[in-house]
């Protein structure tokens, strides 16, 4: 099973690289929505990385962490889209 665990970790490594590459979109924007999109990419990829780490490092509690991240990922997007700009209150 050693080979499979190494493979899990290698895929996690690749996904981490992906995630960091996605940072370019936070940097360039141009709009706030694009930056939030990149944060969404962070969320989904982090979940995959956590699931892979749970298997590779034999820490089953990390699956609960992944579940929490997906469950609460939408809270951030709701906070972004449902918090009014201050000009809208006038």
């Amino acid at each position: 099973m050693y080979a499979v665990e190494t493979l899990d970790l290698a895929i996690a490594l690749f996904l981490l690289l992906n995630l960091l590459a996605g940072l370019g979109r936070v940097h360039h924007g141009p709009g706030a929505a694009d930056r939030m999109l990149a944060a969404m990419l962070f969320g989904t990829t982090t979940v995959a990385v956590l699931l892979l780490l749970a298997e590779a490092t034999a820490l089953p509690a990390l699956r609960d962490v992944a579940l929490l991240v997906v469950l609460l990922a939408a809270v951030l997007v709701v906070a972004f889209t449902r918090t009014p700009r201050r000009e809208e209150e006038r």
Binding site: V47, L67, A73, A74, V77, F80
Partner: peptide, 28 residues
């Protein structure tokens, strides 16, 4: 159980992503 939990994570992720994409599209 582990397989079920993985399926649950994916299911919740689908709902969250659907709603998030909808909200961001609407916002834009």
């Amino acid at each position: 159980w582990v397989a079920a939990k993985l399926a649950l994570v994916w299911g919740v992720a689908l709902v969250a992503a659907t709603v998030s994409a909808h909200l961001i599209a609407r916002y834009t």
